[in-house]
């Protein structure tokens, strides 16, 4: 890599690694709230443009104009060390926004699917997507006031998720609650990677992502 003028002060360049976690779920389920609860910056927004063809993120074969849609992503940041930054990307889970999902999950630690028990079906599409891409994910039920309370097992059954997928209740407004959601996700991602590594040393096929 070009290190031209990397440092006027003669310090060696430090490599800074960044990682990301995806927060998915329907509109109003609390994605931005969750991001804001743990982010060190006010959640920011960036927009990606899709052409009518929907061929890809900011589709490179056409200049945006008529027939384009944009999808807004909210994101936050946690600087973990001088050389390590974690980003949280919140994005709507509707299938019509999937043009950017492959890019969004590429290299991601994993995903949190936020669920509102009043609109459980909103979470079907992201769950299908993460399962098909074999991205580690967990389900977090955001407990809105006045929403029906179900036992975790009832939600698990309604969503038909595998027993190894963590499922937890959370309050997206509470920092500690969001922290434990993220910690559980990363533990799950580590566990999944361990299994994957064990499988591949036994000659299994590598995971496609």
């Amino acid at each position: 890599m070009d290190s031209a003028g990397y440092s006027r002060f003669g310090r060696p360049p430090t490599a800074i690694t960044s990682a990301k976690i995806v927060i998915a779920g329907g509109f109003g389920v609390g994605k931005t709230t969750l991001v804001g609860s743990v982010s060190e910056i006010e959640p920011l927004t960036t927009e990606a443009v899709m052409t009518a063809a929907g061929a890809g993120i900011d589709d490179s074969s056409k200049v945006p104009g008529k027939g384009t849609t944009t999808v807004a992503m909210d994101f936050g940041r946690i600087t973990m060390a001088q050389d390590l930054v974690l980003y949280l990307f919140g994005t709507p889970g509707q299938t019509r926004f999937w043009f950017m999902w492959d890019e969004l999950i590429r290299g991601a630690v994993g995903a949190v699917v936020l669920v509102d028990t009043r609109r459980v079906t909103d979470s079907f599409a992201p769950i299908d997507f993460f399962e098909s891409r074999r991205l580690p994910y967990l389900v977090a039920v955001n407990c809105f006031d006045g929403a029906p309370r179900y036992a975790a097992e009832e939600v698990r059954e309604a969503l038909a998720i595998a027993p190894e997928v963590p499922l937890m209740l959370c309050d997206a407004r509470q920092r500690e609650s969001c922290k434990s959601v993220l910690i559980t996700l990363v533990e799950h991602a580590i566990q999944s990677l361990r299994l994957e590594m064990a499988r591949s040393t036994r000659g299994g096929s590598p995971v496609m992502r």
């Binding site: 990682a19 946690i78 973990m80 390590l84 974690l86 630690v109 993220l182 910690i183 533990e187 991602a189």
Partner: peptide, 10 residues
């Protein structure tokens, strides 16, 4: 990196 992210979150 995952291990570092985990301890950073904790």
């Amino acid at each position: 990196v995952l291990e570092r992210v985990l301890s950073g979150l904790r």
